[in-house]
C-alpha cells in the first residue's frame, strides 16, 4: 500500500485511491481527534466526518502542502469545532455546571488506549491538565507528544512559524508544570 503523501495529485482524485488514503491515515486522524476530544465514540464519529470532508474537498487540495498535513488540519479543525459545540451545549445547563463540575470529572477520567499500562494514571492527570491550556498551546503540545510530530511539521499543520511553535511548546510546558504543581500540592499535602 502506498503512503498517502507519496501519491501524485492526479492519482489521488481517482476514487479507488481514496480507500488507500483512509487506510493510510485513519490511525493518524483518529489519534489526533482522540487527543483533543478525549472520548472514543465521539472521536470515531468525527474521524468519519473528516474523511467525508477529505473526499469532498480533494478537488480543492492544491498539493501546496503534504496530503497528511492537509488532513491533519481538517481533523484538528473538526475536533475543535465539535469541542466548542459541546461546550456551548454544556453552558446551556449553566446551573448544573456550577453545582456539579461535571466537565472536570469527565476530563480526569479519560483513559487513552495507546498509553503504556504503567503510565496510565500519570497520563490521566496530564490529559486533565492539558485541558486547562490555551487552545494553541494544547494542540502544539498534543501534536508533539502524542502524535510525535516534529516542530516543523507542527508549524505546517498549524500555519505558524517554527519560532512560534517553539514558543508555544515552552509556554505549554511551563504552564503544565505550574498546573501539576498546584495539583500535587492540593491533593498530596
Amino acid at each position: 500500500m502506498n503512503h498517502p503523501d507519496s501519491i501524485p495529485l492526479s492519482v489521488i482524485l481517482e476514487p479507488l485511491v481514496f480507500s488507500d488514503i483512509v487506510t493510510g491515515c485513519q490511525d493518524m486522524v483518529y489519534n489526533a481527534v482522540l487527543g483533543i476530544i478525549q472520548n472514543e465514540t465521539e472521536a470515531e464519529d468525527i474521524t468519519q466526518d473528516v474523511f467525508v470532508q477529505v473526499y469532498e474537498g480533494l478537488d480543492e487540495f492544491r498539493n501546496e502542502s503534504k496530503l497528511s498535513t492537509w488532513i491533519y488540519r481538517i481533523a484538528i479543525s473538526k475536533a475543535l469545532d465539535f469541542e466548542k459545540k459541546k461546550k456551548r451545549q454544556k453552558n446551556g445547563g449553566f446551573l448544573k455546571k456550577i453545582f456539579s463540575g461535571a466537565a472536570e470529572e469527565e476530563a480526569v477520567s479519560f483513559n487513552h488506549p495507546g498509553i503504556l499500562l504503567d503510565k496510565k494514571d500519570d497520563a490521566r492527570i496530564l490529559f486533565a491538565a492539558m485541558n486547562k491550556l490555551p487552545e494553541k498551546q494544547r494542540i502544539a503540545f498534543m501534536l508533539h507528544k502524542l502524535e510525535g510530530l516534529n516542530y516543523q511539521e507542527i508549524a505546517d499543520v498549524m500555519h505558524l512559524s517554527l519560532m512560534a511553535v517553539e514558543s508555544l511548546q515552552v509556554r505549554a510546558k511551563n504552564r503544565l508544570k505550574e498546573l501539576l504543581k498546584t495539583y500535587y500540592t492540593t491533593h498530596f499535602k
Binding site: 490511525d27 468519519q48 503510565k119
Partner: peptide, 28 residues
C-alpha cells in the same frame, strides 16, 4: 514534587497510536 511532575509530563512517551474500530472505510 519535581520528579512527580517530570514523570507526568513524560507519561505519553512510548504511547502507541490509538486505533479506530474496524470497517471504518465501509462506514465512511
Amino acid at each position: 514534587l519535581d520528579p512527580s511532575i517530570d514523570r507526568v509530563l513524560n507519561s505519553f512517551d512510548g504511547a502507541e497510536k490509538a486505533k479506530p474500530q474496524p470497517y471504518i472505510l465501509t462506514r465512511i
